[in-house]
């Protein structure tokens, strides 16, 4: 551990952000995907106002999960193709720092998409979604998705079936996150108390980040 932990995390994060700023490929494709699926949802479900109220948080989170999967697959696949991952792994740095860097990258991209999504959904579903508490839920929920997603994606990009395996492996495992965040989102939209649910999400986040940090070093072994 020659390079300090925080420095490694930020240099990886900075690299990801800079690449993204230059190409704008990842966030734009994630955002486009989410807009499209929200549109498809709102047409396909043919909801009346009341049903929309009930469906809106489910739609938001299912879309975000898929956007996160999309982003993870792309970012880790390109990392592998360009050989960056191998370079990073050879370097004498803490694996947990690499994990944190990659995780934060995906986290930030998905949060950006989520934040952009809120006004769009407000317009499409005619339901006020832009609230400070929503941002908090987005941050906590997406933290859960990215933490376990980064771990699983690092594994699945090394398998034969690659992109197809990540959703299969990830969807069942993120169910605790989806369940709790949908519940919390509903509570916010109906102006109910959601402290209990927030606490559960926080616990799940801690659990997933712990699991991810400890197990990451094994999925990057060669």
């Amino acid at each position: 551990m020659n390079t300090p932990f925080i420095q490694v995390v930020f240099s990886i994060l900075r690299k990801d952000l800079r690449t993204e700023l230059r190409s704008r490929e990842l966030v734009s494709s994630m955002a486009l995907f989410t807009f499209l699926s929200i549109l498809v949802f709102s047409f396909a479900l043919e909801l009346d106002r009341e049903a929309k109220q009930e469906a809106v948080s489910g739609v938001l989170w299912v879309t975000l999960v898929f956007a996160s999967i999309l982003g993870l697959n792309r970012s880790l696949a390109s990392e592998r193709e360009e050989g960056n991952m191998d370079a990073m792994l050879i370097a004498p740095v803490n694996r947990i720092a690499i994990y944190m860097g990659k995780m934060l990258g995906n986290f930030i991209f998905t949060v950006i998409v989520g934040v952009v999504l809120l006004p769009v959904m407000t317009v499409l579903f005619n339901f006020s979604m832009v609230r400070p508490t929503m941002i908090l839920i987005l941050i906590l929920g997406i933290l859960g998705l990215s933490s376990i997603g980064t771990l699983l994606a690092t594994m699945t990009v090394q398998t034969r079936s690659r992109e197809t395996l990540l959703p299969i492996a990830m969807l069942p495992v993120v169910l605790p996150v989806i369940l709790t965040v949908v519940r919390a989102t509903n509570a916010i939209l109906n102006n109910q108390d959601m402290m209990q649910t927030l606490l559960t999400i926080g616990l799940v986040d801690v659990l997933y980040i712990t699991l991810g940090s400890f197990l990451f070093e094994y999925v990057t072994e060669d």
Partner: peptide, 14 residues
């Protein structure tokens, strides 16, 4: 074996 071990640990959450 490595990946299966990791996923087996993660899967217990469900």
């Amino acid at each position: 074996r490595l990946f299966a071990s990791v996923y087996g640990i993660v899967a217990i959450t469900t």
